[in-house]
Design a protein around this nucleic acid. Sequence first.
DNA 1: CACACTTTTTGCGTGCCGCGCAAATTTTCG
DNA 2: CGAAAATTTGCGCGGCACGCAAAAAGTGTG
Lengths: 201, 201
Amino acid sequence: MGLRERKKLAARAALSWAALKLAMEHGPENVRVEQIAAEAGVSPRTFNNYFGSKEEAICAIGLDRQERVRAALLERPADEPLWDAVIACVLEQYGGEPDREMVARVRMQMRHPSLQGEHLKARAEIERVLAEGIAERIGADIRFDMYPSLVAGAVSSATRVAMNHWLSSEPPAELIPILTEALRSLAAGLPQPPRRKKPLC
Amino acid sequence: MGLRERKKLAARAALSWAALKLAMEHGPENVRVEQIAAEAGVSPRTFNNYFGSKEEAICAIGLDRQERVRAALLERPADEPLWDAVIACVLEQYGGEPDREMVARVRMQMRHPSLQGEHLKARAEIERVLAEGIAERIGADIRFDMYPSLVAGAVSSATRVAMNHWLSSEPPAELIPILTEALRSLAAGLPQPPRRKKPLC
DNA sequence: CACACTTTTTGCGTGCCGCGCAAATTTTCG
DNA sequence: CGAAAATTTGCGCGGCACGCAAAAAGTGTG
């Protein structure tokens, strides 16, 4: 890979990190594109060569996970059931210690209205790659078979629901158990549940 | 309901319809807020009292479906299995003849990058209301039980996947069968599928 | 290294947008 | 009707996305 490609990747990463950092510090509304560019060491005009908006830059951080998930999925044992493999790969992504910074970051991206749209677009992109990985694993073709996309969509959706639940949990709970429960019940086919306990109202 | 409320609803609807109409005619990029306001008979400034952007106005059209779905869900026979009720309600929404205008509208909202974010936000809102309806139906509480949100998310996701598949179908296929297949296999729990036929490449 | 070629960065200009503010207008209700 | 409350509107400002062309940086060859 030539110097050019490396510099482009570096510039993109630098802009994205700078955008996220400043947004976390001052709130997304109080960050100017000018600041982000300065922090990343490029001109303001260059920012828009990489991102169409500051929101896009802020939410682009998680996008490099997509290829990792896909790769991880293909490295699972070939005879492992699909659902087990998918669940293992997703949990792997959030396996680290419950980072305090991640809480704030996810909360910001999911709750702040000006970021929601871009956040959902980023999730959709990850979902697309996940669907490709699933298709590759089971030997299907996304163009003709909806199954891989359905699984990827359900997994992505369950992940989002779990994170919402986690962010709302009072007192603060652990992400992993919540995420695991969501994915497990999804893998179990979301059968009509036993009548749950009444709300506490 | 007083005159004020009625006028507000009317203005909002007029703006949203005007935005959609102009976007369909000239493409979202070539529509000015000024035009939308003029078409709706209000001042440009007033536009932003109702919507934060023209993209939001364009995508707001489908938002009144949310309450209809919720209501429809609660009117299904009480002893009907949840999945059957949900599937029936969703299909009901798209039950009409395959409108040529709807094809173009959905394609525009899903494919045009500048609309994707708002479109996904609108879907999220619908999903939230659907989750509330499901919770109400099975006597659960969204705050403590993820099940309703998981079902709503999976259904919403499957609907989106089906629509994508439909938009990409070559030659153009019917929406209803595709949507039905997606929801049925979801309700069946997305079991690991039999090995499908090879891609035609 | 020199040099021509390609690609990226940068500065500048332009049109559009979101929104705060306060005055004008409209609706509500006693 | 008349005062109070809510909405619309005009105005202005800061900011943003992007086209364009010049400058700068990287690439490959002799």
